[in-house]
Design a protein around this nucleic acid. Structure first.
Lengths: 235, 235
DNA sequence: ACCTGAACACCGTTCAAGT
DNA sequence: ACCTGAACACCGTTCAAGT
């Protein structure tokens, strides 16, 4: 805020009034981590790489995070925080609102290759994730969905959301060009069609047809339709 | 094949006729990998650890696999090969047969913590995985499910199966005792219930209620019910 | 053809020593 | 209180040298 703007360390000027780079902080480390993640994917997020991004050594990060998983958890919540929750639940439009929110979650993670592995490996505990869960439950409540069904549905649908985000972002990160996957599929087909795998061979072209987004939304349709046609679980 | 068998270097006996450990092979490496996986989880499957299991150095493995991911792919297919496909599809019982098969897939992966990350990260190409897909499609066909719906359903349900297996096996591997997860959840609750997260606070106990198996089967019920009540996708 | 030891370029994490 | 360099105990992979 003050005139304490940072400058390169080599051109030292007035020796006072020079905080140089802003003092390291949890937030600064998380932001650095997100930059590394965006460019190099989840496996590129090493303590050394993140530290390098804020011009320090890996050991310095341990002041703010006890270990790498803790940093990744914080990064995930920051990604979650960027997701638009959308309008307040409207009982007339709850379903499309819900589908919209779930699509935005996947899209929000698409820019950060592999981040979806974090909530998959252990349940998120951050505030942004809690807000998303709250909004999702509110939408289900607006739709008149039974509490017990809603409770289990949210678990299941987030598993689906995270798995979708992980799979698609990994494919993107591996630089899979448009036809890449299709090509590998055709190899497979060539090797094992014949009459040993009749259904598989017949449907392989259909399986890979359509975008990931279309398949994801077909999945959501199945689950929500199922929710409206199934008895609540016995608890 | 000849009598050129190696023997433990210290107790050399009749110099011929001693195959000692079977000569290294793809299969032997995969089996060694599975032993390491079962005991130490997916992140414990290092090239050095697998090599040590067959009493050689990491470099030796590169004769059989070009890199670690290729070994993991082969290990996954071996896990898939152990899964019982169950009885031939019966149009009268296709739904319970399908649910049974999908449950066995998750159970089959539960003994190998984290293996489910392999099919999640890139589509399986092995023969055992193909057989499982074939059987799944055959069951859907027996149920009279439309081809296009079946094609997308299998994609979606395997994503769900793999994500479930990954999540549960990781929790188990981290040594989460019975109440472990519940405890962390209560921390969360204590921190953020109040009126900021009314739905979430109210439903958190329900969300974690029931076993992973029950939640998984509720998810399958939603998807299959949805499949029977939804129009096939436009392709 | 297969195996090996040693090396290279990395990791996460710790810790004594600095400020 | 925070930062740091160096170290420790690891990684995946390569390669020259052996058999």
């Amino acid at each position: 805020m003050a005139s304490s703007a940072r400058q390169t360390a080599r051109t030292r000027q007035s020796p006072r009034e020079r905080p140089a780079k802003p003092p390291l902080s949890r937030e600064a480390v998380v932001d650095a981590g997100l930059r590394v993640l965006r460019d190099h994917g989840i496996d590129g997020v090493t303590m050394r790489a993140v530290a390098g991004e804020v011009d320090t050594g890996a050991a310095s990060l341990y002041v703010y995070f006890p270990n790498r998983p803790a940093l990744l958890d914080a990064m995930f919540d920051e990604v979650a925080a960027k997701i638009d929750l959308g309008p307040e639940p409207d009982p007339e439009r709850w379903r499309e609102q819900l589908v919209g929110l779930l699509n935005r979650i996947v899209e929000g993670m698409d820019d950060y290759p592999g981040i979806a592995r974090v909530p998959l490996a252990n349940p998120p505990t951050g505030p942004a994730a809690a807000q998303i869960a709250e909004r999702t439950l509110a939408l289900l409540a607006a739709g008149g969905v039974d509490d017990r069904s809603a409770a289990w549905f949210i678990d299941i649908v987030f598993l689906f959301v995270n798995a979708t985000a992980y799979e698609t972002s990994i494919l993107v990160a591996e630089g899979a060009e448009e036809g890449e996957v299709g090509a590998r599929i055709e190899e497979q087909l060539a090797q094992l069609d014949s009459d040993q795998f009749p259904h598989f061979a017949r449907l392989l072209p259909v399986i890979t047809k359509g975008s990931g987004e279309q398949r994801f939304n077909f999945g959501l349709r199945l689950m929500i339709d199922g929710l409206l046609h199934t008895e609540p679980p016995d608890l």
